[in-house]
């Protein structure tokens, strides 16, 4: 009996996606052990990698890195298909959609910092929408909007600044 070996042809971009995703998954895991003052307020440092992938390579790479990160992290943490996973996915998808449009903004005026803030706002919007429509279908969650948007701005700025420095360091901006 001959062993059948399935060989998948991988391109250089595939390897880069894998590497970036690995870093993003690692960052997500580190973040998941950090204590959080309230559920949902997280730095979202894995978004740095998504932004970085988008600037350094292309938007497709960013989609891959972001979605792979969401799936892999939830599988590792045992949250696959749980509400946590759904929230994470909703946030990431809306965040990616926002990035798709905001990358078209003139780069003379808009740096990764601005895009990071936009994407973190999109992330929290996606999550709150899902919470409102599915988990807690009641208007009382509007109380949380100020806290979440303040956190989105703060962490969006920090992540954006890190991305900016990374890209500057690698001469990709």
């Amino acid at each position: 009996m001959t062993r059948s070996i399935i060989k998948i042809k991988t391109t250089l971009l595939d390897h880069q996606i894998a590497q970036l995703s690995a870093i993003a998954i690692g960052l997500s895991l580190i973040e998941s052990v950090l204590p959080s003052p309230m559920p949902g307020v997280k730095p979202g440092i894995a978004n740095i990698i998504t932004l970085y992938a988008m600037y350094r390579f292309n938007f497709r790479t960013a989609i891959w890195v972001s979605i792979l990160r969401v799936f892999a992290t939830s599988l590792i943490l045992g949250q696959f298909l749980s509400p946590t996973f759904m929230l994470s996915l909703a946030g990431s998808l809306l965040s990616l959609l926002t990035l798709y449009f905001s990358i078209k903004l003139p780069s003379r005026f808009f740096s990764p910092i601005g895009l990071s803030v936009l994407s973190s706002f999109a992330h929290i919007t996606g999550q709150l929408l899902l919470v409102r429509l599915w988990l807690i279908p009641h208007a009382s969650i509007y109380y949380l909007i100020p806290i979440y948007s303040a956190a989105a701005l703060a962490f969006g700025l920090i992540n954006g600044w890190i991305t900016y420095r990374l890209l500057k360091h690698h001469n990709s901006i």
């Binding site: 903004l105 005026f109 740096s111 701005l153």
Partner: peptide
Amino acid sequence: KIFLGDSLIIFISLIFIIFTF
């Protein structure tokens, strides 16, 4: 100049946060 658009985004988000509060 690079940060002009970013400042705009940050400014609008700050107004939004104050508004929601």
